[in-house]
Computed example of a mutant assay.
Amino acid sequence: MQKPRWQQVSFAEEPLILVNARDEPCGFDSKLNVHAGAGKLHRAFSIFLFRDSEHVLLHRRSAEKPLWPGYWTNSCCSHPRRGECNRIATSRRLEQELGVSAELRYLYRFQYQAAFGDLGSEHELCSVYIGRLDDEQELRVNRSEISGWDWFHVDDVDKWLAASPETLTPWFKLEWQQLRGRHAADIRSLFTDAGNSTSRPHAVGE
């Protein structure tokens, strides 16, 4: 039986957006270069999808990933490319990685830096989003990006983080603390606000 061919959606040469700490663009460079060494500060995003207020979609990064291969992380994470706002980039990436669409709510932005041994680093100004994935949407997972996935109860994720933090990506661990703390009510409101009418709009530049 012929092995299925999965669409490649990440490229070493794709141009990412360099920013300063105020999220002001200050140039562009390839994905390869911005992750080399200690990394260059660039714009990124993380998405958490929920099927109800207590179950979140997590995925395991493909073994083909140059940084943190095989680690578990949030539903979807990537970067806007040159010329893209976050609104377009998040929609593109949800389709490319998971084969779904979702209305997203912007929560907050933070800066972090993390090294993966001597192979490279993440140095990102990362915008965090949450969204609701309705049951009728079937996941069509891109196996070139994702090697495993499942829905997890939020309490089980808490236990996982406490027991085996080394299996999770560094950005996920930082973001999950915020989602379980000051943004817990935002997750609940995804399922209580009629039509998601209180969603915060994307910030300028996103």
Rank of each mutant, 00 (worst) to 15 (best):
R93F: 00
A36P: 14
S46N: 07
C76L: 02
A194T: 05
L98C: 14
T90A: 14
D134I: 05
H123M: 02
T169R: 01
R5D: 11
Q96A: 14
S53Q: 05
A203W: 03
G37S: 07
G120K: 04
E103Y: 04
L119P: 13
G83P: 11
I146L: 04
L49P: 15
T192I: 00
G131M: 02
R87P: 09
V141S: 13
S127V: 02
V141N: 10
G131Q: 00
R188C: 14
G99Y: 06
A12I: 01
D156H: 04
E138C: 15
S164L: 07
F11T: 03
Q137S: 15
D29H: 05
H42R: 13
R200K: 11
V19R: 02
F172C: 09
S75Q: 01
Y106D: 15
W151L: 12
S121Q: 05
R5H: 07
K173P: 13
Q2K: 00
G70L: 03
E64L: 12
L18Q: 11
A36W: 06
G83Y: 05
H35V: 04
G120A: 08
R182S: 13
T73N: 01
K40V: 14
A194R: 01
L107F: 03
V34E: 04
N86T: 06
G148Q: 06
Y108L: 08
L18I: 10
E206M: 12
K159W: 02
